[in-house]
Computed example of a mutant assay.
Amino acid sequence: MKFGWMAAFGLAVAVALTGCATTIGRDYDQNRVGQFVSGKTTQDQVIATLGQPQEREMESDGTTRWHYQYIVSKNSLGDYVPFAPVKADTSGKDTFLYFDAQGRFLRAENNQSNM
């Protein structure tokens, strides 16, 4: 009877570990970036659409680069038990938006990955 309880506990721990996840950034709709019009869309409109960027950088030429990022890594039993066949499932998206000195959208660079 004692073995049955320990096996159930071990199974519960394994199931709990498979549900652990690490998240970086805040989710945003990367598809909506295609709606921005170069020279017309303002920074306020971008914020209304995507929310605040994770990072803002001013370039030497007066342009600004905003960075949106969202990464999710779901751990699996293979991350904790050697020789288990399954490892973490990681997916992410990065978007860099560039604005002129007047705060108008210039262009975007989108990246997505699934590992």
Rank of each mutant, 00 (worst) to 15 (best):
M1H: 12
M1R: 05
G4D: 13
G4M: 12
W5Q: 08
M6H: 09
M6D: 06
A8F: 12
A8H: 10
F9T: 11
V13T: 15
A14C: 14
A16C: 10
G19D: 09
A21V: 09
T23E: 11
I24P: 01
I24V: 12
I24R: 13
R32W: 04
G34T: 02
G34Q: 05
Q35K: 13
Q35M: 07
F36R: 01
V37T: 07
S38M: 02
S38N: 05
G39A: 05
T41K: 00
T41W: 00
T42N: 01
D44V: 04
D44P: 00
Q45M: 05
Q45C: 02
A48P: 02
T49Y: 04
T49L: 08
L50G: 00
G51D: 07
E55H: 15
E55I: 13
E55C: 11
E57F: 07
M58S: 14
E59C: 12
E59F: 14
E59W: 09
D61P: 00
W66Y: 05
H67F: 09
H67W: 10
Y68E: 02
I71F: 04
V72S: 04
V72F: 00
V72L: 03
K74T: 11
N75P: 04
S76Y: 07
L77I: 08
D79F: 08
Y80K: 06
V81G: 12
V81T: 15
P82Y: 11
V86I: 15
K87A: 13
A88Y: 05
T90L: 02
S91P: 02
S91K: 13
G92H: 05
G92P: 06
K93R: 10
T95Y: 03
F96K: 09
L97C: 02
D100W: 00
A101F: 05
G103E: 06
G103T: 05
G103S: 07
F105C: 01
A108E: 08
E109T: 08
N111V: 06
